[in-house]
Design a protein around this nucleic acid. Sequence first.
DNA 1: TCTATATAAGATTAAAAGTGTCCTATTTAA
DNA 2: TTAAATAGGACACTTTTAATCTTATATAGA
Lengths: 153, 153
Amino acid sequence: MKLTRAGEYAVRCVLYLASQGQGALVSRRLIADYFDIPASFLAKIAQQLAKVGLIDIRQGAKGGYVLLKNPADITMLEVVEAIIGEIALNDCVTSSDTCRNSNNCAVNRVWTKARNQLRATLAEVTFIDLLHEKSCFIFPQPQQIDISKAGNR
Amino acid sequence: MKLTRAGEYAVRCVLYLASQGQGALVSRRLIADYFDIPASFLAKIAQQLAKVGLIDIRQGAKGGYVLLKNPADITMLEVVEAIIGEIALNDCVTSSDTCRNSNNCAVNRVWTKARNQLRATLAEVTFIDLLHEKSCFIFPQPQQIDISKAGNR
DNA sequence: TCTATATAAGATTAAAAGTGTCCTATTTAA
DNA sequence: TTAAATAGGACACTTTTAATCTTATATAGA
């Protein structure tokens, strides 16, 4: 499991949304410009984030993305796996005759342990943690969320 | 970092050699057949293992591979990284303007921690450990190492 | 010394995954 | 009704991975 560019973009996207607070609407264009992500590529990524319920996508004029969960409840694991699928470190050369019972394999046990550790590490970091630590990103001050103008439904 | 097929093959190859003991010579064909690895692909992998000093490659008739180190001193990390290079979990979208000081990045710190953990886990497992645990592989009894016939130099 | 056996090393190919791009809908605010 | 914004599918390009093929080289043994 190497974090793909799409995964990296997803983390940044959620980080931006988190900086503006749960419920704030941010346009795709703004996020794409800020991080220099191709807008249509970001669209694909956002669709996956929406599929797992992390964000809401608003179509139409003044559309954009809205973070649905509290940043304190969103973990890095969640965002990463929304994009690249459940983390696995090896395939154990699946379907090979030499390794069909991988649950009884010393080598595989090591990979499983490593995988569990990795997932645990990513699961214990929330986006509030990421925002509070100083980082290489500087986000604009969150706008006051004006429910009437944001057009929630 | 997802373990590539080449990496998986390398682990198996070293595991086989370890089962026959340090200094034993095993032909490439034998290992390739045993694990169902394409012989020329195994050749490439073996060359990388030789480059880092793990094995010796004997050319010519009755050639093959010889494990140079004690299996108790060979770690999984060593073998894996010999093939796929030093483990990294993310690229942090290198050279992007938005992330040039990744050492001051909260997100990156998480990845660095995860990476270090992963490497530590792989580093604490030796090939003696792997051999002693029961596994999905059953290796032939190691031949008595006959120095005169094995043709060491 | 000759021959069969075995690997070396480099070039090439094939397949898969990742990273976008483009075009035509569809939705929504005003 | 129109302009702004995203959706969704098809397509293209790039990189990585996984092999394969060919020619060269080394070695054991007759």
